[in-house]
């Protein structure tokens, strides 16, 4: 459901961006955040609206390949850029290795932080083939979880890294 426009909203700003590989053309008020664009205009509700002010990391998406907080990114500032959300991780019915690892390790309890954790983890695993536990902690240090105590999340990301290394055939 689209939120009511803010009082005094100015003219709509046209944008062109690429979301999960799809070209998107849309017009939004300047005050629309990237998270609001994804969730309420495009129906991509995987990215979560947690604190909605840049503390918790539940809204983490990749913008031009880099993890950012969509709740404090303006949609207009994503014009001309590429966005990847948690919806891009699975290919059809096949989960990304880090998703499978989260399931197998019981690393999602309430699950609200999971999409943001997954995107921070994906960025780490894309850039580093053999991350240490400390690397994983650093990469996830901007994502808060109130259920797990983090241990199982860290275990899952480490397991995904090993799994992906094995799938590459130990190159």
């Amino acid at each position: 459901m689209t939120p009511e426009p803010h009082p005094g909203s100015t003219a709509l700003v046209p944008l062109a961006l690429v979301v999960n590989g799809d070209a998107v053309r849309v017009a939004v008020p300047a005050e629309r955040t990237l998270l609001e664009l994804l969730r309420y205009d495009l129906g991509l509700t995987g990215s979560k609206q947690g604190c909605d002010k840049g503390d918790c990391g539940a809204c983490t998406v990749l913008l031009d390949g880099e993890p950012v907080l969509a709740c404090i990114t303006l949609a207009v500032d994503a014009d001309g850029r590429g966005v990847e959300t948690v919806e891009s991780l699975a290919k059809g019915q096949k989960l990304h290795p880090v998703q499978t690892a989260v399931v197998n390790h019981g690393a999602a309890q309430c699950g609200f932080c999971t999409p943001g954790m997954l995107m921070s983890a994906k960025h780490l695993l894309d850039g580093s083939r053999t991350p240490t536990r400390e690397d994983v902690k650093q990469a996830l240090s901007g994502n808060l979880c109130r259920c797990t105590g983090y241990t199982k999340i860290l275990d899952a990301v480490e397991a995904a890294a090993r799994e992906m290394a094995e799938a590459r055939g130990g190159d």
């Binding site: 005094g8 100015t10 700003v13 909605d52 500032d77």
Partner: peptide, 12 residues
């Protein structure tokens, strides 16, 4: 939800 107030956007 914490909506932003409206403003005009300029991107030099």
């Amino acid at each position: 939800m914490l909506p932003l107030p409206a403003f005009e956007w300029v991107s030099p």
